[in-house]
Structure formats: structure tokens, C-alpha cells
Amino acid sequence: MEISWLQAILLGLFACLSSMPGMGGTSIGNYTLGRPLIGGLVCGLILGDINTGILVGCAMQIVYIALVTPGGTVSADVRAVSYIGIPLAMVALSSYGLNAASTEGAALATSFGTMVGTLGTVLFYGTATINLVWQHIGWKAIEKRQYRRLYLVDMGLPWISHFACSFIPTVIMCKLGADVVELIKTALPMDGIAMKTLFTVGSLLPCVGIAILLKQIVRNAMDFVPFLFGFVLAASLGINLVSATVVAGMFAIINYKIKMLSVRKAEVAVEEEEEEI
């Protein structure tokens, strides 16, 4: 599988739109096009294999299911994961002759994507640093009271940062990708320790993604119970995700009603006290 120049250019364009800070805006860019699942669909459309694209996207999405960027610190770059990692993983899968739907296929995709995503944080800091130049122009414009120029500074000039830090790296990596994959393939045999480790890492990495998410909602040991409950629903009872969400919704509603009951009780108590006075 080869990635043509046209395909690489299209991928580069989506990389510009999708990154955090991306030119597609946060909702459409970062949180839609930047999610590996959507990236998988887009890469699949561009490279002409939607099925593989989605399967690779799904595998990587688990690792990045809760990519929270508190205070602008990132542990992975979505443009690199979705528009460099996914195409390269697709190339690697076809080169190794692996099925993306298999466990090994998913593990290979995950290792590739995570490696690229972690290295890709360089792109994030690169973009943010170049943007400082445009902001400098912005401050000058404010001093001179040319406020309309702020639009250019905020929404126009950052395209240049993205050309340098999103477009060019994506095009180059996608064009070189096939050769690099070929190189890795000859250097590291599949039954060697290195490849076995790579695949095992691929199956372990999603745990980090889930754990990052749990960090947001688990504060003490009790908070693990809903998580384990959901785990049991799927693992032991074999309930699918959409149905599990409905069950979860039921519990959430019960919880809300109980919480509100105690809130109302408190309100009533306060009112009664006031009446007595």
C-alpha cells in the first residue's frame, strides 16, 4: 500500500484542521476531526479503505478516549495520532498482511499510533510557539487601535503555523511511511522479542487511556464501583455498549432523584426555620 502525493496532501490538510489548537475550531477540529475514530473514517475515505480505517481508528480511540488537556499541557497530539499514526498503521497492516479486525491488528495499530502521538507533541509545542509571532502582531494592532486586524491574527495567520507544523510533517511522514514500515519489517522479525513486546505494549496501552479518564471521576475506592459495574455488564453479562448506556442512564436518574431529594429537604428545613422566627 502506497500513499500518493494527493492523498498525503489531503491528510496534511486534515491535520491542520484537527489539531489542538486547530484551524477547524475546537468542537469541529479537535473534538471531532481530531478523535481517532473520526480520523479513521477520514483516513479510510482518503486511502480508499473505510473498513480498515475505522477498525484502526477504534483501536486507537481507546487509548485517547479521555484526552484532557488541563492548562494546555498535552501528553499526545491528536493530529499526529489521527493523520500520521492511522495512515501509517494502515500501511503497516497491509504490509504485514494482518487483518485490522484481529487482536494482533489492533495491537499493532495501537503501538504505532501511540508512538507517533507521543512524538507528535513536538508539533503541538511548535504550533503554539509560532503563534506567539502572530500574537505579537496582535498586540501591536491593539496599540494602534486597528482592532479589525485581530480577526486576521486569531483566525488567519495561524494557518502559517499549521503549514509548518501540521501540513509539512504529515505529508513527509505519510510519503516516507511505507519505506519506514518496510525497513522495520526486515529489521525486526515477527517472532522476535522486540515485535512481541511491541504487540504486548499495544494491548496494554489502552489501560492508560481508561485510567486517565478514571482519574477524572474516581476520588475514593467507592467510585470504582460504577466502573466495575459497567465492566461486569459487558464482560460477564455480555451486554453491548448501547444497551449498557441505557442501564447506566437508569442508575444516573435514580442517583439524581436521590440527590435532589436531599437538596429539597434542606431547602424545606431552612424555610421552616425562617417561619418559626
Binding site: 479518564l213 466502573f227 455498549l241
Partner: peptide, 15 residues
């Protein structure tokens, strides 16, 4: 809580 349960199901299904 809803999120916790769904994430549990996601982990069991996908990890």
C-alpha cells in the same frame, strides 16, 4: 456515575 458505568463497559469490550 453514568460515565463510570459506560467506561467500565467500554474497557471490558475494547481492552
Amino acid at each position: 456515575m453514568l460515565g463510570g458505568i459506560v467506561i467500565g463497559a467500554v474497557s471490558a469490550t475494547w481492552v
